[in-house]
């Protein structure tokens, strides 16, 4: 899923400091799963903002709405009747959400309420870790099912660098050296020779280096199947 962190209250309050009536739009997708932009978090933000404004002595009307997903136009269209009623909208979806909203409702102002961070998953309750860099050419099968693109600080493809120490990466002792894990896994499986061949230069054109990406599924473009 896409993982995000909520922006600080100070940053959000500054964004809407001149607005008197706002909508906070949540999303039932990834940001609900990573506890940053679902109904609960939307309600908490609304209440916190009202407290801040009351402390300041200025009034603010805040409505909330949690869309099924903000990354699908059919759901984004669901707020067309109400979107014009507000001075501004704070979206607690990932960076995709406020863009879909901005594209559909060009006259409205949308603010991102979260910082979108990475593709990952929860390793324990409350802890999320990056697992995928979305490079567009998945090759984790070559590395024991682990991704050195996303999980090695240098995205090395041919083994660890000299900064690997006791299984930790030199950038941070809490960051696992994924190459250490890959090599150990291959050793345990008796397949270390899988890593011997020199891997050629990775083609990054499928990643961000090739510019904004688009995925087209012809059979779906033609209609539902």
């Amino acid at each position: 899923m896409i993982v995000a962190d909520r922006k600080s209250l100070e940053e959000i309050l500054t964004m809407v400091k001149d607005n008197k009536k706002i909508l906070i739009a949540g999303c039932k997708g990834c940001v609900t799963v990573c506890n940053v932009g679902g109904l609960k978090e939307v309600e908490i933000l609304a209440s916190s903002m009202k407290i801040a404004r009351k402390k300041q002595g200025t009034h603010i009307d805040i409505d909330i709405n949690v869309l099924e997903r903000q990354c699908d136009n059919e759901y984004v269209a669901g707020v067309s009747d109400i979107i014009g009623n507000y001075d501004a909208v704070i979206s607690l979806a990932c960076g995709v959400g406020p863009q879909f909203l901005s594209e559909m409702y060009p006259d409205q102002t949308f603010y991102p309420g979260v910082n979108t961070t990475f593709f990952g998953g929860a390793t324990q309750h409350g802890v999320w870790e990056e697992r995928c860099a979305g490079c567009g050419t998945c090759a984790i099968n070559n590395f024991g099912g682990l991704c050195p693109i996303a999980r090695c600080a240098k995205s090395l493809m041919n083994g660890p660098c000299g900064g690997s120490s006791n299984g930790a990466c030199e950038i941070n002792k809490d960051t696992v050296c994924i190459w250490d894990v890959i090599v150990r896994k291959k050793m345990d499986a008796g397949k270390l020779e899988d890593l011997i061949g020199v891997r050629g230069i990775k083609n990054w054109r499928t990643a961000r280096d090739g510019g904004p990406r688009r995925s087209i599924r012809e059979e779906l473009v033609q209609g539902n199947i």
Partner: peptide, 9 residues
């Protein structure tokens, strides 16, 4: 409390 009730203008 510093949180005072406010009314819509």
């Amino acid at each position: 409390t510093p949180v005072k009730s406010t009314h819509a203008a």
